[in-house]
Design a protein around this nucleic acid. Structure first.
Lengths: 193, 193
DNA sequence: GTTGAAGCGGAGGTCTGCCTCCGTTACAGT
DNA sequence: ACTGTAACGGAGGCAGACCTCCGCTTCAAC
């Protein structure tokens, strides 16, 4: 267990309750919510989530006073994971490191359908998520730019939103999503002179 | 008024009722629904749409027995408009024609938030919409490919979904959306040899 | 102008989700 | 083992959306 330098990681750790049964329920709720959000988007029924988790609706509300709290916790968990992945690819070639991280982003993120909304949210947690993503992915992008592999007339926010858009889109299959992401990323590449 | 060769155009024309008051209400409902879908996505409240249109909920249901019927009609109207635009750009340079049509797509479409779902729907009307989009935009793409301006290792469906993804994404402003779309389309361009 | 049919609208029944409240249960510190 | 407290869970009240039904209105054909 290494140190977690990202703002979001503290938030993630601080939420989980101490008592044994409470912690178990908390985990079950996060898991169930991840599934439900993946299937139905951020509007998934909270009572359904509680049912899936095998806990009462009251327990859900005690842990997460609002729908937003719950969604934030799920999303923050995913962002936290992705930030750690960014460290793991740092030793590769600049362009390879960047694109493999972005591919991971679209494949891993299960809250796909709700990402667009999260991009514009100004609450503390979403700000921390974005801040963490910048800290984790920004250096990969800058390194690719400095290496002459990525064009310099767009910024990291542009790139992240482009990838988020592709992430949130339905494709016929994973092969098509990969193909399309590859094409879009080719546009980010510095054109051959 | 020229002939409309697209499958969707017949559908659009056939829906509108004959009687004067009925036609007026129909138009008001389509307009109100366009607004509501733009604001709240495809799950917008039907009672709210009827209120905006200034008609009773019963009138809404008589014209559109289900939410799907209403959404299909709004969407088909937009597709119909876009298909006509495709004819208007056909005299430009191949690459210019294609990209200006696609920019028009992201700017004009007001049902942005619901497009992703429409891409995968198998109902008659959505099939007709997609068929029409292929008839209208496919030739622009093929012409760009034949002219050596667009790469040949992706198909028109790939392209449309990529653009739809960017369309449905929230950006900070229109300039960012345009910038990102431009970058993604650069990826579609044949790389300089 | 008459008249029949097409169209109108909204009251109201139903369903589903949200959220609170409180009697019961299970944990953990002593 | 005991016990205070934190956590549990689901009944139930509330809100809002869906959709039907039917008495009233408006159109347009004659």
């Amino acid at each position: 267990m290494t140190a977690q330098p990202f703002p979001v990681s503290e938030i993630v750790a601080a939420q989980r309750p101490h008592r044994k049964d409470a912690a178990r329920n908390y985990d079950a709720l996060i898991t169930a919510a991840r599934e439900a959000f993946a299937e139905h988007g951020a509007e998934a029924s909270l009572e359904d989530i509680a049912r899936r988790a095998g806990v009462g609706i009251g327990t859900l509300y005690r842990n997460f006073p609002t729908r937003r709290h719950l969604f934030e916790s799920v999303y923050a968990g995913e962002v936290n994971d992705l930030c750690r992945v960014a460290g793991q690819v740092a030793d590769r070639e600049p362009w390879e490191a960047l694109t493999s991280w972005l591919h991971r982003f679209v494949d891993y993120t299960v809250t796909k359908r709700a990402i667009r909304e999260a991009m514009d949210d100004e609450s503390d947690i979403f700000l921390a998520c974005r801040e963490s993503m910048y800290q984790a992915g920004g250096p990969l992008f800058e390194r690719a730019q400095k290496a002459g592999a990525a064009r310099t007339d767009l910024n990291f926010d542009d790139l992240l939103r482009m990838v988020a858009g592709i992430t949130a889109t339905n494709f016929l299959d994973d092969a098509q999503r990969d193909r399309v992401l590859g094409v879009a990323l080719d546009g980010v590449r510095t054109p051959a002179v």
